[in-house]
Amino acid sequence: MTDGLGAPRVTRRRARTRADLLAAAFAVFAAKGFGRVSIEEVCEAAGYSRGAFYSNFATLDELFFALYRERAELIAAQVADALAQVGPGLDVPACVDRVTEVLFDVDWLLVKTDFLVHAARDPDTARALLAHRARLREAVADRLRRAQGDTELPAVLGGADGAAHAVVAAYDGVTTQLLLDKDVPAARAWLKQLLTALLTDGSRTS
């Protein structure tokens, strides 16, 4: 079946199957880790046969890449939307509260960390990860630029782009601890303190 232009048309049923496989893979990868999961396990979790898998993905690597790309795009859009909802000025606690609701998903962090390790050994995967991180930084930098008319950033950060890099670095550090202790409230509190000190020269603590 084609779309009239010679290209295969994705049916609603196939799209549902693909979505179910991705959702099942997310749960299985988060629980066991990429590299410890078989195609059979993903199929069993999704309730599909190997045939259904191979009609959507050639390999487990391809599925993993598709899963990461889907989740990364969703997270980047949610971060941008969360930051856009905060009023004028640089209200650090309000920004952090909104963004951490999106970012502190431990299952996502586990999958993302697996992807990072995979990317460190594969240049194509590394480029995809770098592109995702660039989109996150740009969402943060855009919010900081819009706030600069009301709130000055510390000069040492070198403007909104430098501040965005520092914000992402702080987030990376906090989430590394979170992966070990699974204490989400403590991670949110610590990130809020770090970013308040970072973005306001420590002059605000709440």
Rank of each mutant, 00 (worst) to 15 (best):
M1N: 13
L5Q: 08
G6P: 04
R9T: 12
R9K: 10
R9A: 13
R9P: 00
R12G: 15
R13I: 10
R13S: 14
R14S: 11
R14M: 08
T17Y: 03
D20N: 11
L21M: 10
A24H: 03
A25H: 06
A25V: 11
A31V: 08
G33R: 12
G33K: 12
G33H: 08
F34W: 11
S38P: 02
C43G: 06
A45Y: 11
G47N: 00
G47I: 07
Y48M: 12
S49V: 00
R50C: 05
R50L: 14
F53Y: 14
F53H: 09
F53M: 13
S55N: 13
F57I: 11
D61A: 14
L63H: 05
F65P: 00
A66L: 04
L67A: 10
Y68C: 09
E73W: 00
L74M: 09
A76G: 10
A76W: 00
A80N: 03
D81H: 08
L83I: 10
Q85M: 08
G89R: 09
D91M: 10
D91L: 07
V92K: 05
V92Q: 09
V96M: 09
R98C: 00
V99R: 06
T100G: 01
F104M: 13
D107G: 10
V111H: 03
D114P: 07
L116A: 12
H118W: 15
R121H: 14
P123N: 07
D124H: 12
T125A: 15
T125C: 14
A126K: 10
L129A: 12
A131Y: 01
A134N: 06
R135S: 07
E138Y: 02
A139K: 00
A139H: 00
A141Q: 02
R143L: 03
L144R: 01
Q148P: 01
D150W: 15
T151N: 06
E152T: 07
L153N: 00
P154C: 12
A155N: 06
A155P: 04
G159M: 07
A160C: 02
A163I: 10
A164Q: 06
A164C: 11
V167R: 06
V168T: 11
A169K: 09
G173K: 04
G173F: 04
V174A: 03
T176A: 14
Q177R: 14
L179A: 05
L180T: 05
D181A: 11
D181N: 15
D181Y: 04
K182G: 00
K182E: 10
A186D: 13
A187H: 04
A189H: 09
W190A: 07
L191D: 02
L194S: 09
T196S: 15
T196M: 14
A197H: 08
L199I: 09
T200G: 00
T200V: 03
T200W: 03
D201Y: 04
G202D: 10
G202Y: 07
S203Y: 01
